[in-house]
Amino acid sequence: MNIFRLAGDMTHLMSVLVLLLKIHTIKSCAGKSYPCSLCFILLESSSGISLKTQELYALVFATRYLDIFTDFISVYNTIMKLIFLGSSFSIVWYIRRHKIVRRSYDKDQDTFRHFFLVLPCLLLALIINEKFTFKEVLWTFSLYLEAVAILPQLILLQRTRNIDNLTGQYVFLLGAYRALYILNWIYRYFTEPHYVHWITWISGLVQTLLYADFFYYYFSSLKNNVKLKLPA
């Protein structure tokens, strides 16, 4: 474990917590007897969260953590896997099933056909992998899928008029975690002999590059202290 990877995992954890906080806000807000102004805005405008991206991430964790009960790495590793699995599936459940949260989900805008991402990633994983075993192919699939999983969310953000802070921070933290992982891979490459994982590195690089334009607009909105807005 190195500082880059720990920072990456904590950033990833933060992104999940921000999303859970946002869902909690929507839930508690609608529970009020009087519609406060914030609640009104929250409930009227869409949450800006893409269910498609959440479903893709649940699939990423489900296929990546198949070894959670067979290969014990560390208590930290197991706990983090359980957190990511539990949070991703519960977020999908909230947006799909929860009587209040689902109202803030705008399915007419979240139209990305994410099935078109799953199949190519699966085919690619069958062709390019480190070892042709069930677990290894699904693990490679999870890497390819995670690289593109943010696309529905980024496209939804382009369509969302006013991106609220929590959603913007969620996407930023999600992009930042993989950027920190790239530093972790560089560090491990120079400190651990035989540590070479081209598939992981290239997928992680592609994933981070997909956030490039979001990062640009995110930082300029911070610098100019204006609302985050992605060009359509």
Partner: peptide
């Protein structure tokens, strides 16, 4: 040696 590749990253 047949090293079973264990992925130690999340």
């Amino acid at each position: 040696p047949l090293t079973v590749e264990v992925h130690d990253e999340l």
